[in-house]
Design a protein around this nucleic acid. Sequence first.
RNA 1: GCCGAGAUGGCGGAAUUGGUAGACGCAGCGGACUCAAAAUCCGCCGCCGCAAGGCGUGAGGGUUCGAGUCCCUCUCUCGGCACCA
Length: 855
Amino acid sequence: MQEKYLPTAIEAAAQAHWNATRAFNVAVDPAKPKYYCLSMFPYPSGKLHMGHVRNYTIGDVLARWHKMRGYNVLQPMGWDAFGLPAENAAIQNKVPPAKWTYDNIAYMKKQLQSLGFGLDWDRELATCRPEYYKWNQWLFLKMLEKGIAYKKTQIVNWDPVDQTVLANEQVIDGRGWRTGALVERREIPGYYLAITKYADELLADLEKLPGWPERVKLMQANWIGRSEGVRFAFPYELDGKAEKLWVYTTRADTIMGVTFVAVAAEHPLATHAAKSNPQLAAFIEECKHGSVMEADLATMEKKGLPTGLFVTHPLTGEKVPVWVGNYVLMGYGEGAVMGVPAHDERDFAFAKKYGLPIKQVIAVPGQRFSLEAWQDWYADKEKGVCVHSGKYDGLNYQQAVEAIAADLAALGLGEKKVQFRLRDWGISRQRYWGCPIPIIHCASCGDVPVPEEDLPVVLPEDCVPDGSGNPLNRREDFLACTCPKCGRPARRETDTMDTFVDSSWYYARYCVAPATREKNDRMVDEGTAYWMPVDQYIGGIEHAILHLLYSRFWSKVMRDLGLVAYDEPFANLLTQGMVLNHIFSRRTEKGGIEYFAPDEVELKRNEAGQIVGATLKADGSPVDYGGVGTMSKSKKNGVDPQALIEKYGADTARFFMMFASPPEQTLEWSDSGVEGAYRFLKRVWAFGYQLKQQQASTGASGLRREIHLLLKQANYDMAKLQFNTVASACMKMLNALEKAPADPHAREGFSILLRVLSPIAPHITHALWIELGFGEDILKAPWPEPLEEALAQEEQELVLQVNGKLRGAIRVKVGADRTAIEAAALASPEAQKFMAGQPAKKVVIVPGRLVNIVV
RNA sequence: GCCGAGAUGGCGGAAUUGGUAGACGCAGCGGACUCAAAAUCCGCCGCCGCAAGGCGUGAGGGUUCGAGUCCCUCUCUCGGCACCA
């Protein structure tokens, strides 16, 4: 046995062993309980970042832990390989996205292997491979047949210079990222998936997910946003024709307080009014500039202009002015909203700004309505009753809504309606590097689906985008085809699918047997019946809504097509926190900000160890410390996992990641913390070396009880997925062992330490397990459980409090009754001192913990 | 703006879910070993106070024998907002 800890050699040997024994290649085995452990697959951006290392270490700890406890564990890996960054790289380097992507995959796969993750590489997939995306296309056609997929117009960011659609990320301060041109909102046709048809089930089934964090379920529920309200119309006349302006509201009880109606810039009424009103036309044009992002719309200044048109209030018959508002979006609901300034905060501000009347129609007893400023109770629907509302006066929220809905219905002008905030999923992207939408455009037959037997529609892999639109539009060999219906020459659709489509079902594809994959005549096979649902899904909190919701929806569609049997794809979810690092920067002479990597900088500390400044190592000039933030290229605060692995080994990287903070919290990078992890593993190795040389003595200490107590704690924490305290328990075990290396139970204790540590640091524990002769393969060793006999004790310590303040401790026999404990407590010198001769009013005893004497 | 989460020593974090606040580690300080350094090992380490003791979990209030943990108000930080993945 080597005296020195040599991670490089140890890790290579352990990985070779796992490969040779096919330790992580699994098959369906009905005799064993299964455990499907899945980490969100990476986008192949070039190399792994620390977020990946953290994500996959968490997964691997769980996978190895379950394997040692007898589960048949599936842990697969693949590549979310389509997406915008490949096109950006192509623009920069003039390399086809396909080549860039495949090169990245090859490099990142090596990195994953060097970290020792127990992955079944036989099941690897990449979403940019035709054999995978064929099934995106196939399911899309099925959805078309069932009416779940359909075509309508969508609003996109349009760069007028590059003549191309921009992603939200490519819009910076309202301008195109490459051209700097003011971005316009533009309507173009696109395909949608009717996720709203599943809104009710997606909401209700959140209750079937006890293994999901409450906050994620809450975010999803709020995103789906079920609301009960009233859809109703304001009648009006246009060019002599009777028309209706529809709106939706959850506050029908305030309908008598409507003093205006606001419509979107794209609304037909606005368009009509603009024809004879140049000022309005200019305003509408202005509204069309700017991004389509909701956050921008919500924070921008609310502006409006009257159209000069009026509609009729459906209940009072009064004339209500119609305004165009920049905050009303055509894509949401009806593209028009009623304005009730007295009881809606946004309408209140709008009315104040433009001098519109504010009419109070809700009163809360004891509160005085004032036009001075908005007060929160104006929007109250619990305590409020209707006033100034004619026949509805005195009704509460529920009564008023019922009465008003009934009256509107009688007039044929409205009805109660359940509405969702959730919108249908637009999947068309005007981009090259994605899954082609399998549609053919024929001059005489229209949009014709590609016949199933012609799938997949293969994306040519040699295009190099230049930023000026989708290069597929210039590929005659891709575009030219014949219409499946009439056989005449036709053109292929060049839009590709949103990459969220690719990631909505990959977890099911991993379950497919190799033979099915080979033939590729089915999207999924019987493997899903055994492996699905995923027992533990792990990924970033940033996916809490979209990816997870789309995957849930896609699963339900597959279920309704009879492809799978499960309702929900992910039984348990762990949302891991981000990896942060220190940020150093300074102002440049030009007024910009220059960032410095943490290893270019030296920290200055005061006597207490507080950071008081930082200087550049190169020339000693001062830089500003900007706290911590997510690792990013632009801030130069990323840490390359590869350098870390090469310097310390995979086990150190894994151990630090697990130890530094609990999985769900953010993790702050610390070079000295990594050193600490390395130091610990060196001590583990050194202790193993020492233990191998020496003979055990007979002088038993408290070591055994201590180790088993720590084991109990570690198992409890492991079940809670709190790996930082599991790592800490390992450190405590080693501290205890180092204090009593000659204890007769030292070997037993070390074997427990190795097994508890092995999911986190699998290589070093694999090597030591063999060196010390505990067995052939620690992966096959049973997970340790604490022994009652080792934990037993005769006496225990109870904390002594007087009036809730800690004053000392008493020792009592285990199982002592209340009287005995109380007597011991009252007799103790600390109690005597702090009771100061006063009698005890009450003695609170918490068994096994404390005694509190109240005087 | 809306939805969600968080705040504990110089730092990362722990606290068996209402019962000894600061486990474990990092940094710092002191010492041993060394020609020296690194590595390693030992000790100290919330704040105030000579001490007895007091104070202390973002701020303010409340419930309780007892609050980091529960309730109310506020501040700040982070994640998401539908074409980044």
